[in-house]
Simulated scan of single mutants.
Amino acid sequence: MTTKAFDKPDYIKVQNADFDMAVEYQRLRDVEVSDGAVVVFVGLVREFSQDKHIKSMFLEHYPAMTEQALQTIVQEARDKWPLGKVSVIHRIGHLDANAQIVMVGVTSQHRNAAFAAAEFIMDYLKMRAPFWKKEMTTKGDFWVEAKASDNDAAAKW
Rank of each mutant, 00 (worst) to 15 (best):
109 Q>T: 13
126 K>G: 14
115 F>S: 07
126 K>W: 01
98 N>I: 02
119 E>P: 02
74 V>W: 05
31 V>L: 14
49 S>L: 09
51 D>K: 11
137 T>G: 04
134 K>L: 10
138 T>L: 11
71 Q>S: 05
47 E>L: 10
143 W>P: 12
134 K>S: 05
113 A>M: 00
41 F>E: 04
51 D>R: 08
58 F>S: 12
26 Q>A: 12
63 P>N: 08
22 A>K: 14
51 D>T: 12
102 V>K: 12
11 Y>P: 01
28 L>Q: 03
144 V>C: 04
76 E>L: 12
150 D>L: 15
132 W>T: 10
84 G>L: 04
1 M>W: 07
132 W>Y: 10
116 A>W: 06
110 H>T: 04
71 Q>R: 10
31 V>F: 12
127 M>N: 12
125 L>E: 02
126 K>A: 10
15 Q>N: 01
125 L>N: 07
91 R>H: 14
105 G>A: 12
71 Q>V: 05
62 Y>W: 14
4 K>C: 04
22 A>W: 00
126 K>I: 11
49 S>P: 03
35 D>P: 06
17 A>D: 15
121 I>D: 07
74 V>S: 05
30 D>A: 09
80 K>W: 00
154 A>W: 04
74 V>A: 11
10 D>R: 03
114 A>P: 10
41 F>W: 06
69 A>L: 08
38 V>K: 01
18 D>H: 07
126 K>T: 04
30 D>T: 02
42 V>K: 10
109 Q>G: 15
70 L>G: 05
105 G>P: 09
114 A>C: 13
13 K>W: 08
144 V>F: 06
75 Q>E: 00
24 E>I: 06
57 M>H: 03
139 K>M: 08
15 Q>V: 07
69 A>H: 03
149 S>Q: 12
22 A>Q: 12
148 A>W: 02
143 W>T: 13
52 K>R: 13
135 E>H: 05
76 E>V: 00
156 K>Y: 01
86 V>K: 00
156 K>G: 08
33 V>M: 02
7 D>V: 02
151 N>Q: 13
114 A>V: 10
47 E>F: 09
16 N>W: 04
31 V>T: 05
68 Q>W: 07
71 Q>N: 11
25 Y>E: 07
136 M>P: 01
63 P>Y: 09
35 D>N: 15
63 P>S: 09
8 K>G: 04
